[in-house]
């Protein structure tokens, strides 16, 4: 009888696995695709699409997981070899080599599901990544990753990048709520990866390439920017701040303040030099 207990071990692990995923959405500390009120929920339009996709795949794979584990545990329980008093098996094993119809069924059904998932997600992928589908707006900033910081270059009052009035900041990304925002992503040394966890957005910054990336946000507030690609010994601390402004005016105010600060600093430095 004791040999049957092994089936309980497999059952235990399967049950705990499912339980962990069932519990996770209800704990703000555990889980990102959680209700809108919880901290860490997704704030971008693409983030909601990706979370939905995640949940669809989670449901499908979860059902498959439960199905296979139930079958496995049930088999381990039912078909375990039991011996009678003489040490002879109580029951003989069945003798068959397979079943063509079954093979066809369990080939075609997963195939249909997989093709469904592929087609279902394709629109999201194209919307996010195809350069032709990028929002037709001038770039908010050019972001150049380097060991171990993000250099943000915003166009100054003239609205053009790479002109003398550009605003250059480190690790500080600002943009406006509910506006599709485009950036140009670059790297000046090794490969980095531009990762906005709460926007579900990730794009490698590759030296030698300028990659357009777009995102938006439906929530004003501050978020985090992470480097997701190993970029050297300081990779872990390559963190940036993201601030989403409520209104265009707020963003403009912030920009002019920062530009003022940048100019004043340079002027001060210059006059300091003269004074000496």
């Amino acid at each position: 009888m004791v040999v049957r207990n092994w089936s309980f071990l497999f059952a235990l692990v399967a049950v705990l696995s499912v339980a962990a995923f069932l519990y996770a959405p209800f704990s703000p500390d555990w889980w990102l695709p959680n209700p809108h009120s919880a901290p860490g929920h997704s704030v971008s339009s693409m983030g909601r699409e990706i979370d939905l996709l995640f949940i669809v795949i989670l449901l499908i794979t979860g059902l498959v997981f439960i199905g296979t584990q139930v079958a496995l545990v049930w088999e381990a329980f039912t078909f375990v070899d039991q011996l009678d008093e003489q040490g002879k098996p109580k029951r003989a094993a069945s003798y068959f080599h397979g079943d063509n119809r079954l093979e066809i069924v369990w080939t075609l059904v997963p195939a249909v599901i997989l093709v469904f998932i592929t087609i279902y997600q394709f629109g999201t992928w194209a919307r996010i990544k195809y350069p032709s589908r990028n929002p037709k707006v001038p770039p908010l900033a050019e972001i150049t990753a380097r060991q171990f910081q993000w250099v943000m270059r915003y166009p100054g009052p003239d609205g053009r990048l790479h002109s003398p009035d550009d605003l250059i900041l480190i690790n500080d990304l600002h943009f406006v709520k509910n506006q599709p925002t485009l950036i140009h992503l670059k790297s000046s040394d090794v490969i980095h990866s531009f990762f906005l966890p709460q926007f579900r957005l990730k794009q490698d910054a590759v030296p030698g390439l300028t990659i357009p990336v777009w995102f938006d946000s439906d929530t004003a507030g501050s978020f985090e920017l992470a480097c997701a690609e190993l970029c050297g010994w300081g990779h872990y601390k390559m963190r940036g701040n993201v601030t989403v402004h409520e209104t265009e005016a707020e963003f403009a105010k912030w920009t002019s303040e920062r530009i003022g600060e940048q100019n004043r600093d340079q002027l001060d430095l210059a006059t300091d030099g003269e004074a000496r």
Binding site: G47, L53, T61, W125, I128, S193, R200, K202, A228
Partner: peptide, 20 residues
Amino acid sequence: IGGLSGIFMAASPVDMHIHD
């Protein structure tokens, strides 16, 4: 488990979030 979690990554939009 390992196979099913692979499907999340195969779905490239979801992979955007869980990659790395």
